[in-house]
């Protein structure tokens, strides 16, 4: 099976049933995947930080997938443009790990996850699969053939 790596602050879609999309080594970043079983097509996006508006980030047009608040709407819009049916989507959220002692503002991973959940809820999406938090480093694979999700935690096996 061909594996295509998705970089942070980026997105990829596929309808190649021989392909898997992979988000490697997720620390505090969060990967959101969407899969349409009817069309056997899916997409994967990784963002790094929760809130562009809060950071007065003015280059969101150039970097729409850096922050959750711009990344998630862009991702859902791009998914629709790619032909994924909004009503048929299964969505997964993976990552958002945190270091010991990261609370409040410094808990970037936790804030990333919270922001992702809020933005998805706003458009009526509840993730069907979540693997988030903790002090793990995760690698996520989305199989385009069947929408299967595999999460490998560094130092642990097998995939879960």
């Amino acid at each position: 099976m061909k594996t295509t790596v998705v970089d942070v602050s980026d997105v990829k879609f596929s309808r190649d049933t021989e392909e898997a999309l992979m988000a490697p080594s997720l620390g505090s970043c969060v990967a959101v995947s969407a899969y349409d079983a009817h069309n056997r097509a899916g997409g994967l996006m990784i963002f790094m930080l929760p809130n562009a508006e809060e950071m007065a980030f003015t280059a969101s047009d150039e970097h729409p997938f850096m922050f959750a608040d711009t990344a998630i709407p862009h991702f859902l819009q791009a998914a629709e443009s790619y032909g994924l049916e909004a009503t048929a989507l299964t969505v997964s959220v993976v990552g958002g790990g945190q270091m010991l002692g990261q609370t409040g503002r410094s808990n970037v991973g936790g804030r990333n996850y919270t922001m992702a959940r809020q933005l998805l809820a706003r458009v009526g999406i509840t993730p069907t699969h979540e693997d988030v938090g903790g002090r793990h480093n995760r690698t996520l694979r989305l199989r385009i053939a069947d929408g299967g999700i595999e999460v490998k935690v560094a130092g642990q096996s097998p995939e879960r």
Partner: peptide, 22 residues
Amino acid sequence: DCVCSMMGIGTGRDGLSYRFSD
């Protein structure tokens, strides 16, 4: 080091298992 670990750059089994100091 903390930023690299949070970004998952070359991190392995130890992952984020270090203490962050505000």
